[in-house]
């Protein structure tokens, strides 16, 4: 900022406040590859012992790779659904003359703010009734649906920034509205698609409550439920193991975030839940 004010007192103050957070994340990494004596804070040896869960399943738990695959399927599928439904519905709300357009728009806006987690009791019972309880398909569908209003909202915002003239030109060139959307408009919002896709993927990857409630079974377990189960199990307290599984779980998130920070910032800043 302006050079008339000294920056270092602020940097120092914020460093102190941020220290616990940094400390927690540094220890998260360090503890997975070292051993520390009880009552000490400094590790005494380097070890890969905590990572054996990668090749020998923890007793009574499903294979970690199976769980990781479930998580990948869950996150990918739900983000694919969010992406395809939002990119079509967002376009309609931004550009097309559909009946009840205002009603749809108001609906999406309300749903965007509406705390969908309150519906979980009803959704749980519905999934039980229709037989989708404890299936990946069910929880994928629910996750996609709950993320969709945000997706539509974001996509509408991005479509709104595409100049009308581009579409008008396309129509004058003889293209149908569908072709205009597919070939002329969609390419303009590619950054938005990337951002929303990533966001939905990360949101699925991190999701805990939905799979915990709707698909807790070992067969369909995802990493969040797996790790929560591990931590909640009082008979097997092994902080280093928890952290190693945690790192295994969080690394993809951090990498994606680092690579696509600029794209994601748009969405994180624009009114996500939390």
């Amino acid at each position: 900022m302006t050079s008339n004010f000294r920056a270092w007192p602020v940097v120092l103050a914020l460093s102190i406040v941020s220290a616990p957070l940094v400390l927690m994340y540094v220890y998260l990494l360090v503890d997975t590859v070292t051993s520390t004596a009880p009552g000490s804070l400094i590790p005494y040896e380097f070890t890969l012992r905590h990572w054996t869960f990668l090749w020998t399943p923890v007793p009574g738990r499903p294979d970690i790779w199976r769980v990781a695959l479930n998580t990948l399927v869950f996150a990918t599928a739900s983000s694919a659904i969010v992406l395809s439904l939002s990119s079509t519905a967002g376009y309609v709300l931004s550009r097309l003359n559909v009946p009840f357009r205002r009603f749809f728009l108001a609906g999406v806006m309300v749903l965007h703010a509406f705390p969908s987690v309150t519906l979980i009791v009803a959704i749980f019972l519905v999934l039980q009734m229709v037989g989708l309880y404890n299936s990946l398909a069910g929880v994928i569908l629910v996750k996609a649906a709950l993320d969709m209003p945000l997706g539509i909202w974001i996509m509408k915002g991005f479509y709104d920034t595409v100049p009308w003239e581009i579409e008008m030109a396309g129509i004058q060139d003889g293209a149908s509205r569908f072709t205009v959307w597919r070939r002329l408009v969609l390419p303009q919002v590619r950054p938005a698609l990337l951002a929303l896709g990533l966001f939905a993927f990360l949101s699925g990857w991190s999701e805990f409550i939905l799979p915990q409630v709707l698909a807790p079974d070992n067969r369909v377990q995802v990493l969040s439920v797996y790790l929560a189960g591990l931590i909640a199990d009082d008979n097997n307290f092994d902080m280093a193991l928890f952290k190693s599984v945690g790192v295994f779980y969080v690394v993809p998130v951090i990498l994606l975030f680092l690579f696509f920070q600029k794209h994601l910032m748009n969405i994180y800043g624009g009114g996500t839940k939390g």
Binding site: E165, A169, G170, I171, Q172, G174, S176, P187
Partner: peptide, 17 residues
Amino acid sequence: SQQRNVGVVFQSYALYP
């Protein structure tokens, strides 16, 4: 519009970027 066979040049040109 598609069936009218009219060519339009817009103020912003509206080229497909």
